[in-house]
Design a protein around this nucleic acid. Sequence first.
DNA 1: CCTCTCATGAC
RNA 2: CUUGUCAUGAGAGG
Length: 512
Amino acid sequence: MIISEMQSKLATWSTENEERKFDRLIRIIADRSWLSEAARITLTSSGARTPGVDGIDKRRMEAMLDLELETLRYELLTGNYCPQPARRVYIPKANGKLRPLGIPCLRDRIVQRAMLMVMEPIWESDFHPVSYGFRPARSVHHAIRTVKMQLQDGNEQTNSTAGRWVIEGDLASYFDTVHHRLLMKAVRKRISDQRFLSLLWKMIKSGCVDHGLFRASSEGVPQGGVISPLLSNIMLHEFDQWMEAKFLSKKVRKDRWAWNFGIQNKRPIAIRENRQWKPAISYCRYADDFVVVVKGTKAHAEVVREACREFLEVKLKLTLNMDKTHITHVNDGFTFLGYRIIRKRGSRGRMRPVSSIPWEKYRRFTEKLVKQLSGNYGMNRMDFVESLNRQLAGWANFYQYTDHTATIFSKVDRTVFWKLGYWLARKYKRGFRSLMREFVRSPEKGKAKIWILQGQNSRGFYGTLALRRLITSRKRWFTWRNPEENPYILRSEKRRTVESYFDEVAFALSNT
DNA sequence: CCTCTCATGAC
RNA sequence: CUUGUCAUGAGAGG
């Protein structure tokens, strides 16, 4: 079985028929090549060396892989497969609290990966265009760009009193509170294969082992499970659909326009019935984090928030954290997906949404670097600068589409410059000034000066190395993807041309 | 086209 | 001692 072709078929079928329920999926995931691909991905992931409760790590799994996959295949087809409980580990979160992880053992991760490989192509056709979390070909940047566009003044009609209010949705410990029966109900909308469904049921019911004690799971999906992100999207897709039907669809917008038009033109019936202006709504979701933009009054926003709360609580058995679900005016700014977004007056007097790096993120990053620069005196200097450069490059890369980075970037540059100077001075017991005279130079003519070191790194490479400056990091053009398209659907024509092209290249190379 | 290393970020 | 999904960048090799 060719995996990409099978996934393309599943994606096409679910796109073409939105009612279609898939049967005999267990036969696909029990396929030899399917399972071995799932195993390959699982074993090449960075967490593969961390075992589950059975203590089997990457090395041991690789040693008996063929036999293990045959066993899995047999157990899956006969329905004897039984997932083991996850190993519970607590890791600290940014806010100081602990995050409970459930680490399944490797064979369970392989099976979950096989399930993911079959489920994701199907649901990708269903998911809402403004849902961005955990989905292929979609990123934080797409979500941020979407929200910024929604905040732009434009086409949508507003009355003179309409402002823009933002609801920052926050679900209380979402992964741990997913309702099992409701989740299965959502899954059954697309899957009719009883064996597959009972496998999934066993999976979410398998519980965990905490401090050597087994604990059954009455609700929630394991944080650490391969399919958990997809399951969270399947559950919250119900919320997306409700939002779509209630606030976002073409029909709703048309009706709202007619309604507001009636009020605007002071139709007697509108006045007599004391009709209220209806606000325009837009919405964007990233996993359990979502933003609703209300073009109206704060009271309008409060009504919308209450409606969301009620739906989530009654229909999905999820609790919206009301303390953290703020309603803020766009001009006061809000935080979403690690960005601060605020509407400001632009150059030509027009209000424009801009994004910037939140102070807290800047502080955390420099703190991390300063901590490294206040120790590690035994480290090879070239290795150390290489490591710093990689971290600086990665950070700048994430914020490359942000609007006002210059001040923050130069602040980071300055602290790293000085702290690296002190680091060198202490390591080599030399004066700061003499080090500067010797090693602070311009990388090129006209460029600002920076530490330029030469020497040999631990891998034996000899050369010169300049400390990276964030301020010079370039901004690339942002590329959109088609939000309606299922990325699993292979475009046969394009694919053929690409394949033939690479066949020719391969042929040409093999002949030289 | 493939393999691998390292890094960043969101949740 | 830290799992998972997704995105992105840099580099090395075939």
